[in-house]
Design a protein around this nucleic acid. Sequence first.
DNA 1: AAGCATGGCAACCGCCGAATC
DNA 2: CGATTCGGCGGTTGCCATGCT
Length: 546
Amino acid sequence: MGRAPCCDKANVKKGPWSPDEDAKLKAFIDQHGTGGNWITLPSKAGLKRCGKSCRLRWINYLRPDIKHGNFTEDEELMIYRLHANIGSRWSLIAAQLPGRTDNDIKNYWNTRLKKKLSERNLEQHYQQQSPASNIQHSSSTSQQQQHETRLAKENNNSQAADHSMTTSSLSFPPCNPPHTPLDATISMPQNNLISIMKSHQYLSSPPSLPEFHSPQMAQDIASPNPNPIAQLMTSVEQQKMADIVKSEDLLSAAVESSDHLLKIWGRQPLSHSSPTPSSASSGISTDRNTYTPAGLDRSESNINAAECSVYSSEEQQQQSGHGLVGDSDALLPVMVAPSPTLSIDPIHPHHPLGAGADDVPALDFSSKLGDVHVGGLLDDDMIRTPFGHEDSCQNQGEGSLLHSGNTVKGEELSFDREEPNWWPAPQLMSMQRTSLINPKYQQQNHEVQQQIQQQQFFAFEQQQFHRYEDAMMCPGRLSLDPSIPNGSYGKPHSWNHGPSSSCNSNALMSGLGIIPDYSIHHHHQQMRHYGPQFSWPDAMNWQETR
DNA sequence: AAGCATGGCAACCGCCGAATC
DNA sequence: CGATTCGGCGGTTGCCATGCT
């Protein structure tokens, strides 16, 4: 048998609390504390209330450290950013705002911020409207039409399932379907990368439109097959990839990592099964296996950050682990795929491109059995994004990049299983970003960071821009998971990037609706077929750490 | 001034994982 | 190991204050 009933539901008072009740509750808790048992508290305190009600009243109103009154701009910004990152995880958001309760924040969001965001989005929508944004691809094949039909259908379904208005469900201008045949003469929608880049100081002069890096690439881009890489892979290679994905090691690693982080966070996994907020009017499906419109501000994209992981299959979803994502202000768990890739959501919600995630501790679950590789953190100002951060004066100078190049070898920087408590959640929540790394690795990491900064900055920037080019020219092409069936373009809830990819790079690409989905295998495929333009400097390093 | 609409927010509801029996 | 409750969370409701006509 279970426990005794918590209270007599028929004889408990409901509704607003009277000052007398408040006083009784406060006096009791001041004197005795909650005793860890809310159910017995009301009777002891002389209250005819349910324990749950008492708890709520205390936590949301009577607690002495509660901050009442208007939210500051900083708090507002924080809520925007966190909400864009993790969705409506009010308790997690509240944990970042001292004195604020989840209920407060939830109410504030629902009554004010959501509206603000909606208005802003509407404004942007009209600003971005242009004939070019509705390009009809002339060579639409029946397969493409089917694909689009499916996308539309999925979109409708997801809309129906999405009752809650979130940043993710706000309206967006339509954009190219995932496999729009592209050529060098195509006129890009106004909300494309180049136009956005033009608006930034980074580019003193507009770049020329990118060229295809190879005939093969052009051919692939034009291919009606939505997954060119999968097409290029031989059946043997595909089987190998499938084997990698399904390998016992990876699965167990994912399970163990997941378990560990679940303990750390003491919370259920961020939902990857709940209805995904959908794009209300983008005309693009928001299902995780489909395409995210290009040119979206990540903060307004249909991506629920809590679902930012990539799943190459349902099986992988079930085995998924967790990672941490955040910036200097927020460190939050997200789901990551137990594939040999890393999923993070590094988005700055207020960046025009959704870019600029700073200081993201990357957990690479690619290694076995819970060896969590902590990606090195680069301090602000060390590296800037190509776009600078003019979108937010507060972010001037920020834009640090994170990539695996500054991650030392797995054994040295991996999560120390012998000292599992050095990184518990409460401390994590309040730690400075520079403390995120186990202290004994900090110096080492710092040295690596400096080297990386010196050696790779320019190469990285160049490479990054090439990726933008690629992304712009063929959104979705970069979703290369061969296990995804045809038509499964980009997985908008995740950025399954390789270990050496930068948060900012991927953030930018994500902001564009591009889902970099690299794995070593894919990378090799890309190298083979597309040539060195796809070169990935750290790929080999990453391989070593696996 | 009355009636209605809207906004803000406290409180409730239902769900879920953990804990307990 | 199953049944049941607890604690916590996110979504929703409904009351009250304010603003508008």
